[in-house]
């Protein structure tokens, strides 16, 4: 790459100043693009290592983790039928635990994001919650979309559900985790009634400690207000949320 572009490349993640091979992109850059696309595709298609995740979650001493699957039997169905990823594949037999908040760790569109960030995020988050916010034993969910958490939260009798889920991978961000908070979880909750903290992905995106503080603030706000979603943003919790959005999209 020419000297002219070197400093500009440091100022933006955009693929500028690639140079030319005739009218096309030079070989090294074509391969770099291929490598980034491969990482993103692997994040989508490689299955979550459920055993390793359960073991790591067990280390948090929140109770023995449980595992549930959505109604999408495989990845292809998951990708083409978002409706099936939003409902459980079988009756949920989780037992009502009486905890205030359910925690669901879901593969979503990036198992890599979940494997890397879910446990350290929870390690940071749990100490920040006030003593009244009891946390249920984590539930690992596979072939899952955000709304599956509504069924799990309901089954556990929780007032709040926190879903940590792998976000759709970008070319330069295959390991981005999203956190969705929903008050009074039950089937049929609208996406606009959730709060979302996205792009949890140190060192490039939000770091675990900052994301945990933001989520803890949202949890406190939700409990004070008795709601999540647009009202929580506009009302009790108005601190800036770096990398956060409040209206969940239907991507999940």
């Amino acid at each position: 790459m020419s000297e002219f572009w070197e400093s500009l490349r440091r100022a933006t993640p955009a693929r500028i100043g690639l140079g030319r091979a005739g009218n096309s992109i030079p070989t090294a850059e074509v391969l770099a693009f291929g490598a980034a696309h491969a990482a993103a595709r692997d994040a989508v298609h490689l299955p979550l290592d459920v055993h390793a995740l359960v073991e790591a979650l067990d280390g948090l001493a929140l109770g023995t983790p449980r595992v549930v699957a959505s109604a999408a039997p495989d990845r292809t169905t998951y990708l083409t039928r978002p409706d099936l990823g939003r409902v459980p594949g079988a009756d949920l037999e989780l037992g009502r635990g009486g905890a205030e908040m359910a925690v669901v760790v879901a593969d979503g569109l990036s198992a890599e994001a979940v494997a890397k960030h879910a446990v350290p995020l929870l390690e940071n988050l749990v100490p920040l919650l006030d003593s009244a916010t009891t946390v249920a034993a984590p539930v690992v969910a596979t072939q899952a979309r955000v709304a599956l958490g509504d069924h799990i939260g309901r089954a556990l009798g929780a007032r709040l559900v926190l879903v940590l889920i792998g976000e759709r991978p970008g070319l330069s961000s295959s390991d981005s985790l999203g956190a969705y908070l929903t008050w009074d979880p039950r089937p049929g909750v609208l996406d606009s009634a959730r709060n979302c903290v996205s792009n949890i992905r140190p060192p490039h995106g939000l770091d675990h400690a900052t994301a945990a503080r933001t989520i803890a603030g949202l949890v406190a706000g939700a409990r004070a207000l008795g709601a999540t979603g647009v009202t929580l943003k506009d009302g009790s919790f108005t601190a800036p949320l770096p990398g956060a959005t409040t209206t969940a999209t239907d991507r999940f």
Partner: peptide, 10 residues
């Protein structure tokens, strides 16, 4: 640039 939209992620 380089076919990679770094904002929209596609």
């Amino acid at each position: 640039p380089g076919a990679d939209d770094v904002m929209l992620g596609y």
